Amino acid sequence: MKKRRRIKKNEDFQKVFKKGKSFANRQFVVYYLEKEGQEEFRIGLSVNKKIAKAVTRNQIKRYVRQSFFELNDELPQNMDYVIIARKPAATMNFHETKKSLEHVLKIAKVLRRSSIDNKKSHDRIMKK
C-alpha cells in the first residue's frame, strides 16, 4: 500500500475520532470519516504496546494494510479509516485478520459485498 494512503498526523487521527463513526468487534475498532473530494481512502493504524512485542504489532499492521489493499475495490474511496487493534488480534493469522476486518466493515455498512459474495458462490459451484 502506498504511503500517501496512510494517516500519519495526530490532527488527522483526532478528526476521525471526533467527527467520524465507530464500529467494533472483538479484534478491531474501526473509525471512519467521509472526506469530500478525496480520491483514495487513507488508513491509520494503532496497535497498543500492551498487546504484544514490536514484531507482533508490526505483523498486525502488515496484515491490516494487506487486507485493505485486497478490499480496495469494495471500499468507498472518499474515506479516512482508523483501525485500532485489540488484544485478540495478536494471535490471528492473515486470513482471520481479513475476515474480522470484513466483518466489522460490513457492520459499518461501508463494504460493498459484490466480489466477496461472488467468490463464495463461485466456491459453492466448484464444490459441486
Rank of each mutant, 00 (worst) to 15 (best):
K2P: 10
R4V: 07
R4Q: 09
R5E: 09
K9W: 00
F13P: 00
Q14L: 10
Q14Y: 01
K15I: 01
V16L: 04
F17P: 06
K18L: 08
K19V: 00
K19L: 02
K19Y: 05
S22P: 04
S22C: 08
F23R: 08
N25S: 11
R26Y: 10
Q27V: 10
Q27P: 03
Q27M: 09
Y31I: 02
L33A: 00
L33M: 06
E34Y: 09
K35N: 10
K35L: 08
K35H: 08
K35M: 11
K35Q: 12
K35D: 07
G37P: 13
Q38V: 10
E40T: 15
E40Y: 15
F41I: 12
I43A: 05
I43S: 02
G44S: 00
L45S: 08
S46Y: 07
V47Q: 03
N48Y: 09
K49M: 09
K49Q: 14
K50I: 06
I51C: 14
A52V: 08
A54C: 13
A54T: 15
N58I: 11
N58F: 11
N58C: 09
Q59V: 05
Q59I: 08
Q59W: 13
Q59H: 13
I60R: 04
I60F: 04
K61H: 07
Y63L: 04
V64C: 04
S67N: 13
F68R: 14
F68I: 14
F69C: 12
L71D: 03
L71W: 01
N72Y: 08
N72P: 03
D73F: 06
E74T: 02
L75V: 07
Q77N: 07
N78E: 04
M79W: 02
V82A: 04
V82K: 03
V82G: 02
I83N: 01
I84D: 03
A85S: 14
A85T: 08
R86S: 11
K87A: 15
P88C: 13
A89E: 09
A89D: 11
A89S: 15
T97I: 13
T97F: 10
K99E: 14
S100F: 08
S100N: 13
L101I: 13
L101F: 07
E102D: 05
L105T: 06
K106R: 15
K106A: 11
K106T: 15
I107Q: 14
A108H: 10
V110T: 14
R112S: 12
R113C: 05
S114A: 12
I116M: 07
I116S: 02
K119V: 00
K120G: 00
H122F: 06
H122M: 04
D123L: 03
R124E: 01
R124F: 01
I125N: 00
I125Q: 00
M126Q: 11
K128I: 12
